[in-house]
Design a protein around this nucleic acid. Structure first.
Lengths: 199, 199
DNA sequence: CTGCCACTTAAGAGTGACTGTCAATATAGC
DNA sequence: GCTATATTGACAGTCACTCTTAAGTGGCAG
């Protein structure tokens, strides 16, 4: 019950190597800072060659830049009936993902967030990822409501909701995203909700 | 009436060098592509040394990444009475900036946008800049309405409006931001407006 | 069990962005 | 003119990232 079904021995080895690189990378980033850590150091710690590092991650940034959660949230939104308002659907979707995370997952997420906050370069890429999420969200809303995939109103709602989340996500908090902060997001979305007449 | 008041000869020379670097850089980006253009090439074209390039622009990206407009829009918003709704204030602010731009400025802006669209790396930094603009906008709204600088409702409104603009800004259009597209943004913000009860 | 194929890896050379230092030159203020 | 300061170019060095080549390893057919 390690994870899913890594049939071949090759696949398992790859997954292990990938994980080893990421964990050593994050550890080194925490210990020495992001900029001060070289790819060579990460490769050495993970016991692979530097070129192998780049076979697993296209750039040094990507080693820490993986977001598994957005797609899960989008899926959770799609599964809700269109009788639920967009804001409620988003809040429910976020709850179903964040409130079922194990303490271990939270800890891992916290470590990543802390590094993001400290490195403007990484922050920029995370923000960009978030902006990309608007598209997915707009599509999910449209699908749920049986509208056109590029329906303008859906795009507006999706954009507004993501904008609110970004605006409220604690920029000063060095730890990023705590379960506590989640209530703040819910509160902010409620303010938006109260301003919505649509649907 | 060239621009402001470049008293010393030193200042004038600096401004000229800065402009020369930027213009040659943008021209080369258009001709050869962003990645294929080296800093050395830009420096040579602008007749300065590579080290001088980095004295004017901290990174290669920064040579094309200057946004003079956001602060102007924010200023225009602040100057409006609080009787005007946030959305209307934003639309008016954007109008006062974009509709008074000369054709030359539009052309220059189009060229930049075209390069942004083509280079994911630059897109990410622009998006990040846009997200940063939420803070400025939230502050401007709060100041205008005599509220606390970090008033939650103002942050929500600012986030939602910026989110909508980002969501609607033509991602497919290789030219980015045309006067025509501006009406689309206004339309989208109107949809949001109609959904606002606040103020 | 054995040899073959596809995939994965290490090693090394090369490119280009970016940093820091140092000396030479140009400018501004006196 | 003379001096403090600002700007510059030359140079060396680091590091992310790419590409090529050769060797190792798992999976599979004979």
């Amino acid at each position: 019950m390690t994870s899913s079904l890594p049939a071949g021995l090759r696949e398992r080895k790859k997954a292990k190597t990938r994980l080893a690189i990421r964990e050593h990378a994050i550890r080194l980033f925490e210990e020495q800072g992001y900029a001060a850590t070289t790819v060579d150091q990460i490769a050495e710690a993970a016991e692979v060659s530097p070129s192998t590092f780049f076979r697993y991650f296209p750039t040094k940034e990507d080693v820490i830049l993986v977001d598994d959660y957005d797609p899960q949230i989008v899926a959770a939104i799609k599964s809700q009936p269109s009788s639920v308002s967009p804001v409620t659907a988003l809040v429910n979707g976020m709850k179903s993902v964040f409130l079922t995370m194990s303490e271990q997952e939270w800890e891992s997420e916290r470590r990543r967030q802390r590094i993001f906050q400290a490195v403007p370069e990484l922050r920029a890429r995370v923000m960009n990822q978030t902006v990309m999420a608007i598209d997915m969200l707009a599509e999910a809303l449209a699908e749920r409501d049986g509208k056109d995939a590029d329906d303008l109103t859906c795009r507006v709602i999706a954009g507004a909701m993501v904008g609110v989340v970004v605006a409220i996500t604690p920029p000063g908090n060095p730890n990023g995203f705590e379960p506590t902060d989640f209530t703040r997001i819910e509160q902010a979305l409620t303010i938006l909700e109260e301003s919505f007449r649509l649907r």
